[in-house]
Amino acid sequence: MHHALEKLCAADTRVFFWFNGYRIFRPVELFSRWVSRCGDGYLYGLVGILLWWLEPLQGKVFLLAGLLAFALELPVYLLLKNSIQRDRPCHRLSQIDALIHPSDRFSFPSGHAAAAFVFATLVTACYPAMAWWVYSLAGLIGLSRVLLGVHYPADILAGALLGYCCALPALWYVGL
């Protein structure tokens, strides 16, 4: 098992370096910074409140499902991150400098990816026509974290899975 985990980490690091080859292009760096900020969390709360206020059909259900999903996601995310304690690539790999200052020391799972996929899953359940857009944004938020040097690709995949899995019981609870 230990050997398999080492191989997975090595492959994850190779993919990380492949993505980081694109960081040399200034537009990629600027776009990554901007997209990453979209995933800081403020946008999700703002959209939830606006939908609750302006959209009588699904807005209240969306906000309630969002509050429940994030109430589940955040403690699970913190438990995983503080139990696994995987160092961020910018802390482990001497040749990588993060393009932003990470909010904490550990990388697995990605909180930005988890939140983005909670949000995308909720939006898709309430507004199916938006699925392509919100899942694309969620994927870009995750990719931006790799390009900024603060996450490995596996961190993003784990965060995406966590977010999706935390949204499902909230949607079930509100009847969607």
Rank of each mutant, 00 (worst) to 15 (best):
residue 18 W to G: 04
residue 16 F to T: 05
residue 65 A to H: 09
residue 98 A to F: 00
residue 28 V to R: 05
residue 63 L to P: 08
residue 76 V to L: 15
residue 104 D to L: 11
residue 101 H to C: 06
residue 15 V to P: 01
residue 25 F to Y: 15
residue 57 L to E: 13
residue 158 A to Q: 07
residue 29 E to K: 11
residue 42 Y to T: 04
residue 66 G to I: 01
residue 67 L to Q: 06
residue 135 Y to F: 15
residue 23 R to H: 03
residue 165 C to L: 15
residue 51 L to S: 01
residue 154 A to K: 02
residue 169 P to N: 11
residue 81 K to D: 06
residue 165 C to A: 15
residue 145 R to W: 07
residue 52 W to F: 14
residue 44 Y to D: 05
residue 34 W to S: 05
residue 173 Y to I: 14
residue 99 L to C: 11
residue 146 V to N: 08
residue 99 L to W: 08
residue 42 Y to F: 04
residue 85 Q to W: 02
residue 106 F to W: 15
residue 98 A to I: 03
residue 69 A to Q: 07
residue 12 D to P: 10
residue 49 I to R: 00
residue 28 V to A: 11
residue 142 G to I: 05
residue 105 R to D: 12
residue 94 S to W: 07
residue 161 L to P: 00
residue 40 D to L: 01
residue 129 A to H: 12
residue 148 L to D: 04
residue 138 A to E: 01
residue 155 D to Y: 02
residue 140 L to S: 04
residue 67 L to F: 09
residue 86 R to D: 09
residue 122 L to T: 06
residue 99 L to D: 00
residue 53 W to M: 12
residue 83 S to F: 02
residue 51 L to H: 01
residue 141 I to Y: 04
residue 146 V to I: 15
residue 133 W to R: 11
residue 132 W to F: 12
residue 71 A to K: 05
residue 83 S to T: 15
residue 53 W to R: 02
residue 140 L to H: 01
residue 138 A to N: 04
residue 160 A to V: 07
residue 113 A to P: 02
residue 156 I to R: 03
residue 101 H to E: 09
residue 157 L to G: 09
residue 113 A to H: 03
residue 128 P to W: 08
residue 65 A to K: 04
residue 89 P to K: 10
residue 3 H to G: 05
residue 143 L to F: 09
residue 130 M to T: 10
residue 16 F to S: 10
residue 29 E to L: 14
residue 115 A to Q: 07
residue 27 P to H: 02
residue 165 C to S: 15
residue 2 H to L: 15
residue 138 A to D: 01
residue 8 L to W: 09
residue 17 F to Y: 15
residue 33 R to P: 03
residue 44 Y to Q: 10
residue 12 D to A: 02
residue 116 A to F: 00
residue 41 G to F: 03
residue 114 A to L: 05
residue 121 T to R: 14
residue 9 C to I: 09
residue 115 A to V: 00
residue 58 Q to R: 15
residue 153 P to I: 05
residue 33 R to D: 12
residue 49 I to P: 02
residue 22 Y to L: 15
residue 129 A to I: 09
residue 85 Q to C: 13
residue 15 V to Q: 11
residue 170 A to L: 12
residue 24 I to D: 10
residue 9 C to E: 14
residue 125 A to T: 09
residue 175 G to F: 12
residue 116 A to L: 07
residue 62 F to S: 01
residue 83 S to H: 02
residue 167 A to T: 10
residue 76 V to G: 04
residue 54 L to V: 02
residue 167 A to F: 03
residue 66 G to H: 00
residue 170 A to K: 10
residue 104 D to F: 00
residue 95 Q to T: 14
residue 77 Y to N: 11
residue 71 A to H: 00
residue 108 F to C: 08
residue 175 G to R: 02
residue 20 N to D: 04
residue 7 K to I: 08
residue 48 G to Y: 01
residue 112 H to Q: 08
residue 145 R to F: 12
residue 114 A to V: 06
residue 5 L to A: 14
residue 162 L to E: 13
residue 46 L to S: 10
residue 93 L to V: 13
residue 96 I to F: 06
